[in-house]
Design a protein around this nucleic acid. Structure first.
Length: 260
DNA sequence: ATGTCTAGAGCATCTAGA
């Protein structure tokens, strides 16, 4: 089972990019972030024509997540538990059944948090605490699961071309990294890092300042795997070439291949 | 550090968010 996560930065602006990608690279499951669309306006034909069923959790203007799957997705839930006041569309869960077992897929778009400090950073840290609670629940229930998406977290200095530039940024602050480690230390596996210890592999390059041409990147799109899913991992790779295509997103897809 | 991009309101060109 091949699962890809992709922050598309606007599903309407990325229509052709995503349609071609689904057809050519054909993930079994595509977990999307920043669809920037309400559910009714999601261009369903782009994925349905390629054989996917579509589950969205959108809102007007910004944010928005989706799960596209070639096989049925069961028990879809929308929104991260823990705050009834939170109206931002950043979280969706669904269960996908493979040949050898099921996996609960948690698709997320973690808050950016800038400027930090401030209310937006407080929201980010609170959101990360709620995500930790959800991970604890799934672990306690012994549900094989993975959390994937745009975490807006640079885990350590290997994950940025210029680590110093992010020290005071919401994506790289010590508190952000500590919250990430609390999550991982529950017993989850950072899939890409488990396969590739080397520095210099990124998933995001800013549109500004020729960041792509200078390879000034950061790794912020991740897969966190529960123990059973980590045991089933065959590979985890970053599809870097997508950033060099016509009209790219500022993020590229990250792929997880599971023996499921 | 930034020479950018997307969507929304609404009709020219702002604003917000990232």
């Amino acid at each position: 089972m091949k699962i890809a996560t992709f922050n598309v930065n606007g599903i309407k602006a990325r229509y052709l990019t995503v349609a071609d990608w689904l057809r050519e690279d054909a993930p079994d499951v595509a977990v999307l972030q920043e669809i920037k669309s309400v559910d009714e306006a999601f261009p369903r034909d782009l994925a349905e024509d390629a054989g996917y069923e579509i589950h969205t959790h959108g809102q007007k203007g910004f944010n928005g997540v989706a799960i596209l799957s070639k096989t049925a997705v069961e028990d879809v839930t929308r929104g991260l538990p823990g705050d009834d006041e939170d109206e931002q569309a950043r979280y969706i869960e669904g269960t996908v059944i493979g040949d050898r077992g099921a996996v609960r897929i948690c698709g997320l778009y973690l808050p950016n948090g800038n400027p930090a400090p401030g209310p937006k950073y407080d929201y980010k840290l609170a959101w990360m605490a709620r995500l930790e609670v959800r991970a604890r629940q799934l672990l306690a229930e012994e549900v094989p699961f993975l959390m994937t998406g745009d975490f807006n977290v640079i885990p350590d200095d290997r994950d940025a071309t210029r680590p110093k530039a992010w020290e005071d940024d919401a994506l790289g602050l010590p508190q952000t990294r500590a919250a990430w480690r609390r999550l991982v230390n529950l017993g989850l596996t950072d899939a890409f890092r488990a396969r590739t210890p080397a520095a210099g592999h990124y998933s995001f390059w800013d549109y500004q300042g020729n960041a792509w041409d200078r390879n000034d990147g950061i790794r912020i799109d991740h897969f966190l795997l529960s123990p059973a899913v980590a045991d089933a991992m065959r590979d985890c790779t970053i599809q870097t070439e997508m950033r060099g295509r016509e009209k790219p997103s500022d993020h590229v897809p990250v792929w997880l291949d599971l023996d499921l």
